[in-house]
Simulated assay, not measured.
Amino acid sequence: MDAKDMGNDLEKILLTEEQLQNKLDEMARDIDEVYGSEDILVIGVLRGAVMVVADLVRKIHAPVTMDWMAVSSYGSGTKSSGVVRILKDLDTDVMERDVLIIEDIIDSGLTLSWLKSNLESRGARSVRIATMLRKPEAAKVEIDVDFLGFDIPNEFVVGYGLDYAEDYRHLPFIGTLAPHVYGG
């Protein structure tokens, strides 16, 4: 699917596929500088981060092991509920591991703040954060992001892993939906 397939559901494209891939190249270089040849346990946050994780880890030169968590503070709507819960836990022990959490977007920061504390309490040697997107205006807690793609306005976005009602994740770009799609 591309922009023309969306008809009048797409309001605008915020970030093109090319912009996303160029930023991932830059993020991978930064990650390689920090980790060198150290083993990294990459934890992808399901489901939104699947695209970012898949593309980013292929660009990293350090040794990478991957695992997945589903941790959510979202309901079925477009706003964070503030309630954090684990939907799928790790299969890998993080004890004495260098962990890199990869997220698609940081909105309120509540989920990621909780997740980072949780992994530190499990004995991770280090916990760093990489995210493709961050909405500074939506932040409810301060999150130190080690590897950042883009700061974006506080708008509801879809594509490149981000969804609305489980649709639009497969778009190769990041855009906003027309208000008629979500009743906005």
Rank of each mutant, 00 (worst) to 15 (best):
Y160D: 14
D32P: 08
P136H: 06
I152H: 05
S37L: 11
K4V: 14
A49P: 06
S37H: 13
L171D: 06
I40R: 03
T111I: 00
L10I: 07
R97V: 01
I101R: 03
D2Q: 15
A3K: 15
V127N: 03
N118H: 15
F147K: 04
T92M: 04
D163K: 09
L177Y: 00
E137Q: 13
Y182L: 04
M1W: 14
N154E: 08
M69F: 09
K135L: 09
D98P: 13
L177S: 00
L10D: 03
S76R: 11
E33Q: 13
D2E: 15
E120N: 02
N154L: 02
A138H: 13
A130D: 12
K23C: 10
S73R: 14
Y168K: 04
G75I: 10
E26L: 10
D98W: 10
E142G: 11
V157R: 09
S76K: 12
W114V: 09
G159D: 09
M1E: 12
D93T: 01
L15A: 05
D93G: 01
V181S: 01
A165Q: 15
D39C: 09
P136Q: 03
D55S: 01
S121V: 00
I60S: 10
H170W: 10
A49W: 12
K135S: 07
L46M: 01
E38V: 02
G183N: 00
G159I: 09
Y35T: 12
G109V: 00
R122D: 09
A62V: 08
R97M: 04
G149W: 08
F156T: 03
S81T: 13
G36Q: 13
N154I: 05
A165W: 12
K59L: 10
T16E: 09
K23H: 09
S73H: 13
E155R: 11
W68T: 12
V52H: 06
E38W: 07
K59M: 08
E137W: 05
A124S: 06
V34K: 12
A178K: 13
M6C: 05
G77S: 04
F156L: 04
R47C: 07
I102A: 06
G161I: 14
T176Q: 09
L14G: 10
K59H: 11
R169E: 05
F147I: 02
E11I: 02
G175P: 03
L24H: 04
V64L: 08
E38F: 06
P136D: 05
T92V: 11
A28F: 01
T92Q: 08
M1R: 15
V57P: 11
V181G: 00
A139T: 11
A165M: 11
Y182S: 05
G82P: 07
V52F: 12
D9S: 14
A62W: 13
I105N: 04
L24C: 03
V127Q: 03
D25M: 07
D32H: 05
M6V: 05
E38K: 10
D107C: 04
D93S: 07
G7H: 08
D25A: 03
V127C: 05
T131M: 07
I43K: 01
A54C: 10
R122I: 02
G77P: 04
Y160K: 12
D107E: 03
N118R: 14
K88I: 06
D144K: 14
A49N: 07
